[in-house]
């Protein structure tokens, strides 16, 4: 499964329904996810990609869209 598909699966799970945001669409400003889902999203990414995201990297902007999440993972060798 490619990275983008995996991220989409996570987003659907966190949202609790089928969502299909554009790759560059803000997940939070668009209202697809609420602010409290951000913590769940980060935890789900850690689990799905077997990585530990340090607190210093927990900038909401880094996880605000599919392409930003993908870029973060790529920058960290995932």
């Amino acid at each position: 499964m490619d990275k983008r598909t995996k991220i989409n699966e996570i987003l659907n799970e966190i949202a609790g329904k089928a969502i299909s945001p554009a790759d560059d669409e803000s997940l939070f400003d668009s209202g697809l996810l609420d602010s409290f889902a951000l913590a769940d999203l980060v935890s789900a990414i850690e689990k799905a990609f077997d990585c530990k995201i340090p607190d210093a990297d927990l900038n909401p902007r880094k996880f605000d869209s599919i392409e930003r999440i993908e870029a973060y993972l790529e920058d960290h060798g995932k």
Binding site: F28, S35, F36, L38, A39, V42, D55, L58, N59, P60
Partner: peptide, 9 residues
């Protein structure tokens, strides 16, 4: 969002 993210961790 930053407050929530950091506090929940």
């Amino acid at each position: 969002r930053s407050v929530i993210l950091q506090a929940t961790r």
